[in-house]
């Protein structure tokens, strides 16, 4: 038996384009990050999804995929991220100041 011949069981050639999957994922995450921005307290998820979308868009481009899907994913992720950052109450450098103020009511 020829080990190289698997009798037509090869997966069909899908003309895989390097980076296209990452670009599509980036687009989806960009849309999701924008949706989260409009829901209260989910701006944090906007930031997370926006970041992940930007990373995937960058991976897509580094792999050589420069189609419109990647650009749309990049732009939407960036918008979601910026919106999330602006709305999200965060304070780098002061660990848990908001948290502690609230937590003291619930801790003993």
């Amino acid at each position: 038996m020829d080990p190289n011949n698997n009798y037509g069981n090869d997966p069909p050639n899908r003309n895989r384009v390097p980076g296209k999957g990452a670009a599509i994922a980036s687009l989806i995450l960009g849309i999701v990050s924008l949706v989260f921005w409009f829901l209260s307290y989910s701006a944090f998820l906007s930031i997370v999804c926006g970041m992940a979308g930007l990373i995937l868009a960058s991976i897509a481009k580094k792999k050589g995929f420069t189609g419109d899907i990647r650009l749309a994913g990049f732009v939407l992720s960036l918008l979601g991220l910026v919106g999330g950052v602006l709305v999200f109450i965060a304070c780098i450098g002061c660990a848990g100041v908001f948290s502690f103020a609230l937590a003291t009511f619930y801790a003993y």
Binding site: F44, G93, C94, V97, F98, S99, L102, A103, Y106
Partner: peptide, 24 residues
């Protein structure tokens, strides 16, 4: 100390411990 908040008021738990507070 406040783990029980996860069951009684998860939104408050996340608001207090996840959404706020970052260290440089």
């Amino acid at each position: 100390r406040n783990l029980d908040l996860l069951q009684t008021d998860p939104e408050l738990f996340f608001q207090v411990f996840l959404y706020a507070g970052f260290v440089f």
